[in-house]
């Protein structure tokens, strides 16, 4: 039995009927075809599925799509504007913040949440904010640098 929902994703409105048990991440990936948001551990630990829901970072594998009814969602696809990368995306490129790239969309969205609350985070604050995002390649060092790059660029 489908439940009607209305959501705004990356500024665009969508209406759909979803099975109540459908997770938000599957709605984004399989219904809206926004496959930038990844499914990693699927157990609320790794953060690869992080999106911004009504201004706050959440794990979309631990949310039902029906819970997002009426919400505004930002995914990694919504960051780039007119062909220009968001400073956080640019930071990941410039500072070599990724190797395989699997965790990157979640890292970027968590960084987005952090820089929104705290435009000038210390290194310790960046590391603390990334507690819920796992990277198995880079060892985090360059991810931290990428976020520092973005913070500097966004405040200049």
């Amino acid at each position: 039995m489908g439940v009607p929902i209305k959501v705004t994703v990356n500024g665009r409105q969508y209406e759909a009927e979803v099975d109540p048990r459908m997770l938000l991440v599957h709605f984004l990936r399989d219904v809206l075809d926004l496959t930038g948001t990844h499914v990693g551990c699927d157990t609320s630990s790794c953060g690869a599925c992080t999106v911004i829901l009504n201004g706050k970072a959440v794990k979309s594998c631990t949310l039902l799509a029906v819970q997002a009814d009426g919400a505004e969602i930002l995914t990694v696809e919504g960051l780039e504007q007119n062909g220009k990368l968001h400073p956080i995306q640019e930071g990941f490129r410039e500072e070599h913040g990724l190797q395989c790239g699997f965790c990157t969309p979640g890292m970027i969205m968590t960084a987005y949440d952090l820089l929104q609350r705290n435009p000038n985070p210390s290194e310790a604050e960046i590391r603390h904010a990334l507690e819920g995002n796992f990277c198995r390649c880079t060892g985090y060092q360059n991810i931290v640098k990428a976020i520092q790059y973005a913070a500097a660029k966004m405040s200049s």
Partner: peptide, 9 residues
Amino acid sequence: IGDVQVRNM
């Protein structure tokens, strides 16, 4: 508790 994302929900 948990992490940033968990504390938000």
